[in-house]
Nucleic acid binder design. Structure first.
Lengths: 137, 137
DNA sequence: GGAAGCACTTGCATTTTACAAGTGAATTTA
DNA sequence: TAAATTCACTTGTAAAATGCAAGTGCTTCC
């Protein structure tokens, strides 16, 4: 995978050049909240990503330093993907997005108690999730 | 502009269906931080959006309820765009993205003092920016 | 009244995405 | 141990989105 081209060094533009598309953050979400780790697991998500786009995004995110991968020790044809520290540092971004969507999507699938916790004790939610994800590094 | 199709009610997916592309958040950024308000001003941003995409995104963001527009009272052929409350509520998301990019882009254009303020007093930065933007509603 | 400004639209080439099918290595099954 | 299946992709092709250059139709300035 070729390097990501950054249009400018504006921080918003820099971020969008990495995850400003319809799929990348869904892969990150699956790793953060669903304990998914393999190509086949990501493929099963209900948004129905197509196989070539998933392969492309996994390679791109690895190239961008958000994912790392290693061969499964039990199954040589399976790769285990995991979040890097750079991706784990997106936890606050993800939490704020969840909070925003839960406010404006009246049919949101976000669990009510989770949203309530974000609203009463956001920093703790962020700290706990971050600590959990870092503990698996 | 036709309604936005949401793939699922997952909060991440919901948000990406609205602003998960390379341009929408740059328009929001220009409204939030650069005091830009018109088509011509957005067009001048250094990322060089093309004219048809800008027109498409302005219509889409208005349809999604993030922007409102009115005719300029002084110039009938000019439209003034402004952020709605729904877009202003993205301030925390934007601030977290800026913080993340400033961490990982070693050549970030984000002003050092602004990043420092985000890191020492994030909530105040968010509150002040939000209050300022809401004061112009 | 003509020129210029402004906010778009149009046409077309290029790139990206979606969908279906195929591939080859590793693993499981008979 | 040979055959079938799983797994992680790749390939081909059609459809959609994007980029670029040019054009359009108001409005305002001179």
């Amino acid at each position: 995978m070729n390097e990501i081209k950054h249009r400018t060094h504006c921080p918003i533009s820099y971020a969008l050049d990495i995850f400003g598309d319809k799929w990348s953050l869904l892969i990150i979400r699956d790793l953060m909240f669903q304990n998914k780790k393999t190509y086949g697991e990501f493929l099963k998500s209900e948004e129905r990503i197509s196989t070539n786009i998933l392969a492309d995004r996994l390679a791109m995110l690895e190239c961008a330093g958000l994912l790392s991968s290693k061969q499964d020790t039990e199954n040589k044809s399976r790769k285990i993907y995991s979040l890097t520290a750079k991706a784990i540092d997106l936890v606050p971004v993800i939490i704020e997005i969840i909070n925003w969507s839960a406010t404006y999507d009246f049919e949101t699938a976000a669990p009510k108690e989770f949203i309530a916790r974000i609203r009463t004790d956001k920093q703790t939610v962020i700290n706990e999730l971050t600590a959990y994800l870092k503990s698996t590094l």
